[in-house]
């Protein structure tokens, strides 16, 4: 019985007809306007990254040194940087790196944390103990120090950043997935499935995984913000991605020397970072409230 009810529950989520889904989204937006706004910002960011070459007024790599460090104007809405390049265009192109890094790193992190967390939590015993000791060791190294170290070994292009950040956050958040798995494993229907002779992979995929998805989603939304901040810190310390392609962190880092000369130079990329990180966090908060059944009744 228990088995049926849960599979049915999962099927219900996947199979909800479109109008039903839309109404769910609308209900979420009504109850959590700030979170919905955050979600909207994230969607806009992705769209912006996709259509960057179409909307950017200038190229990202066209220096005009004689026009450098101008404030906002009709020709350059966000002003020009220390090489006379258009700041608005660079922010628009920079969104591409932000999106690639976030999707890549958070995607990898989610895979890693789900794999480690569910396996460790589901099998328990010696498997769990061994895996958890490795996680302990991993977590002992402070994040930024770990990243600096890895980046100085593997270089700082986008792909190595994705791998390094993805592994860092993935192993780190596997604990949360593990606790969620532990909670599910003890439920009657999982034991029933085991008693009925279902294979481990089947139980993991059919019963455990759907139930840890909410936790994974919420963790991922918080990590998006962490990835953006990590990129900017790395840029500041001189371990950022190579030029001239812009990233928001790199733009901030380049603006340091000219902060007094043209303060807006630091304001726009900083605001872009703050807006996106704020949005994903608010979105994640709202999502957690909406997905956490214990909190559901309190609204």
């Amino acid at each position: 019985m228990a088995v049926n009810s849960v599979t049915a529950g999962a099927a219900e989520f996947v199979g909800t007809p479109l109008p039903g889904r839309l109404s769910r989204v609308l209900r979420f937006a009504r109850r959590k306007p700030v979170a919905a706004f955050g979600g909207l910002v994230v969607i806009l960011l992705v769209v912006l990254a996709l259509i960057a070459p179409m909307v950017a007024p200038y190229a990202y790599d066209e220096p005009r040194v004689l026009d450098r460090l101008q404030g906002p104007s009709g020709a350059h809405w966000f002003g020009t940087d220390h090489q006379g390049r258009d700041v608005l265009s660079r922010i628009i192109y920079g969104s591409q790196v932000t999106v690639i890094l976030c999707f890549g790193a958070v995607g990898l992190s989610t895979l890693v944390s789900t794999a480690i967390g569910t396996i460790s939590g589901y099998f328990g015993g010696i498997t769990d103990t061994v895996i958890q000791r490795f996680v302990d060791i991993w977590q002992a190294f402070p994040g930024l120090i770990f990243i600096i170290f890895m980046v100085s070994v593997f270089g700082s292009d986008r792909w190595s950043l994705i791998v390094v950040l993805g592994l860092l956050f993935g192993v780190g958040s596997s604990r949360v997935v593990r606790s969620a798995t532990l909670a599910v494993r003890r439920l009657a229907y999982v034991e029933a499935a085991q008693a009925l002779g279902a294979s481990h992979p089947r139980i993991l995929m059919a019963h455990i995984l759907p139930n840890v998805v909410p936790v994974v989603i919420v963790t991922a939304s918080v990590q998006v913000g962490a990835v953006i901040l990590a990129e900017s810190s790395l840029s500041y310390l001189g371990f950022g991605t190579p030029p001239p392609f812009p990233t928001w962190g790199r733009m901030l880092q380049e603006s340091r020397q000219f902060m007094q000369r043209n303060p807006t130079l630091a304001v726009f990329p900083g605001a872009a970072i703050a807006l996106v990180v704020y949005s994903v966090n608010m979105f994640g908060d709202g999502l957690r409230d909406a997905l956490d059944p214990r909190l559901r009744g309190t609204r």
């Binding site: 900017s232 810190s233 970072i273 990180v277």
Partner: peptide, 16 residues
């Protein structure tokens, strides 16, 4: 908003 705002701003930028 304030607490997430502090989280959202890179520390080196704030410091600068």
């Amino acid at each position: 908003s304030l607490s997430i705002g502090f989280l959202a701003v890179p520390s080196f930028w704030m410091g600068l």
